[in-house]
Amino acid sequence: MVTNRIDHTWGMVVDLDRCTGCQACVVACQAENNLAINEKSAFLEKRALEWIRIERYWEGEYPNVKARFIPIMCQHCSNAPCEPVCPVFATYRNDGGLNVQVYNRCIGARYCINNCPYQVRFFNFWHPTWPASFENYLNPDVTVRTRGITEKCTFCVQRLRRGELEVERRAGGRLNDQNMAERNYMPACVQACPTNALTFGDHLDPDTKIRPYFDDVHAHDIHHEQERTTRSYLLLEELATAPNVIYLKKVEPYPIGENEHNG
């Protein structure tokens, strides 16, 4: 069963031009990955678990203000700062190019949380609980984490594994972009996004929709002089973490300051 599985390098493209900040991805992630419900107290204690979060920034002065949204999830860095600092190898880069967290190994030293420049790692300060009526809703494919361990976005690795197994079993081939489109073997946030702002794929596969953006980023990295041909950029690119999530700049038809009447 482990035939062609190692050939993936999963990546995501986030088109900020399309993102409306609707938080559907946040809810989908919460439901898919058995995240405890973030009550008000969790946010007040600053201990809310959001594997993907929408950061909202305001641009301009009132009344000419525009809201900017940026979904931030684990960037699955190829050169992840969280990996070398874990004393027990609880986080490592797996065959699929994912930065994975092994809950069983984690001792909860929280060094990885410090060392993540994107702040996308979360610590379970309490044992997660759900209202009794919710317990049947838990996803059986995803571990329910205990207290005292760190967790983060997995790119819904359970869906990718299931996709690989299904495709191998039925089509005898390997999971590719086309299969994924057919069967929706994609992370929950991508599936839930109403504006298709998130695109997921294997950027080793030449046919995927995300491939041109990754080619562009790899060809014109931050040290090169020339501009990129697409709108791609990486978060905190100067830290050289080599993320596998590409952001596409928002193209502003009516920039603040140029069309004052537009507001």
Partner: peptide
Amino acid sequence: TGRPWRIMYWAFPYDFARGIWPNIRTPL
């Protein structure tokens, strides 16, 4: 640490059962 009873897997490098040795790249 979140799970202090796992000290054996971390401070003392004797984890024969799982075959995973501590990560010597970390200051921890």
